[in-house]
């Protein structure tokens, strides 16, 4: 994974929970451009722990002068977002990976319909800039609980194509009405809490939308949990996974090389074979299907955990 060392050029609170960061090259060099929906992985060195969290890029994909992300503080999380909020300051140097897009636009679409819930608005901020440049039609629906929490209000352009639904003010989104009557060739993109994604999928299925027109990205951070022990058979070592550490991070901390891409249970890159499992794998990913899970022979170490007597991985 190619990573750049960038300077934190700006840090700006957008709401009490969401802060915007801007990264620039320390010598002012241009950064690689990207496509709307791409994320970068930010490396955080916290004492002897290295965390890598993925964040959607929110800046203009066609602007190589810097990358911007918006980070929501998750107080119940493993600590990555708390680190970004509390410990990273303007002027710091920080390692940022090359942009990767696992939530790209289908450029064949006759219309792009985007549904954002809360901080899930982030990938769309870059996508609508890309669509504006391409001159492609879109409609963005942004749902947030309250105006105070809605970081998107500070980030979204004023446009007849952008609609805001604040549930505290009774502005709930009518998914049925939204999905009925869209022109042929419309693609729907949803990013937000799992419940929102499920609701869109359910509504779309009821209205007989074809699956290929539905796209979603759940912003899945590795959940914290109880500590557990794992044996890495090929490396011949046994490692401890701490409560605020992912299995992947623990493998990396032990100096073992493991593949990864999204670090959010979506891309499949870190899939690892399970050689022995006496206990329960806590699957948190969107990659393995029910059959994979039932077979107890695969795990996605970026987000999944384990509880039980023994877990041996082919790593």
């Amino acid at each position: 994974m190619t990573a750049l060392t960038l300077r934190v050029a700006a840090k700006e609170p957008l709401t009490p929970l969401v802060t915007r960061f801007r990264f620039e090259h320390p010598e002012g060099a241009r950064l690689p451009l990207f496509s709307g929906g791409a994320h970068v992985v930010v490396e955080m060195t916290d004492g002897n722990q290295l965390r890598r969290n993925a964040y959607s890029l929110i800046s203009d994909p066609n602007d190589g002068s810097g990358y911007e992300i918006a980070v929501r503080r998750e107080d119940a999380g493993r600590g990555g977002s708390r680190f970004m909020h509390g410990r990273v300051a303007a002027g710091d140097l920080i390692r940022v990976g090359a942009p990767v897009n696992l939530f790209s636009l289908d450029l064949r679409a006759r219309k792009h319909l985007m549904i954002a819930g809360g901080i899930g608005v982030t990938p769309f901020l870059a996508q609508i800039r890309q669509l504006d440049r391409l001159g492609q039609p879109y409609e963005l629906r942004y749902a947030a609980r309250s105006r105070a929490e809605a970081a998107g209000l500070r980030l979204l352009p004023r446009s007849p194509r952008v609609h805001v639904h604040i549930s505290d003010e009774g502005g709930r989104m009518d998914l049925g009405g939204l999905l009925a009557g869209q022109p042929l060739g419309t693609h729907v993109y949803t990013c937000g809490p799992e419940g929102l994604i499920a609701a869109v999928e359910e509504t779309a299925a009821r209205l007989r939308w074809p699956r290929a027109a539905l796209h979603s990205e759940a912003f899945l951070a590795p959940p914290p949990g109880r500590p557990f022990t794992v044996r890495l058979a090929r490396s011949g070592i046994t490692i401890e996974v701490g409560p605020h550490e992912s299995l992947l991070e623990a493998i990396e901390a032990a100096g073992v090389d493991a593949p990864w891409l999204c670090r959010g249970g979506a891309c499949g890159q870190c899939e690892t074979a399970v050689l022995s499992c006496r206990g329960e794998i806590e699957h948190h990913d969107h990659w393995l299907d029910a059959g994979d899970r039932a077979s107890r022979t695969k795990i996605m170490p970026c987000v999944s955990r384990f509880a039980g007597e023994e877990l041996i991985l082919d790593r």
């Binding site: 994974m1 190619t2 690689p32 990207f34 090359a98 942009p99 990767v100 891409l261 891309c267 890159q269």
Partner: peptide, 11 residues
């Protein structure tokens, strides 16, 4: 296909 889908920018 799995390999190619994961080819990354600059690599």
């Amino acid at each position: 296909l799995k390999f190619l889908m994961n080819v990354q920018q600059g690599a």
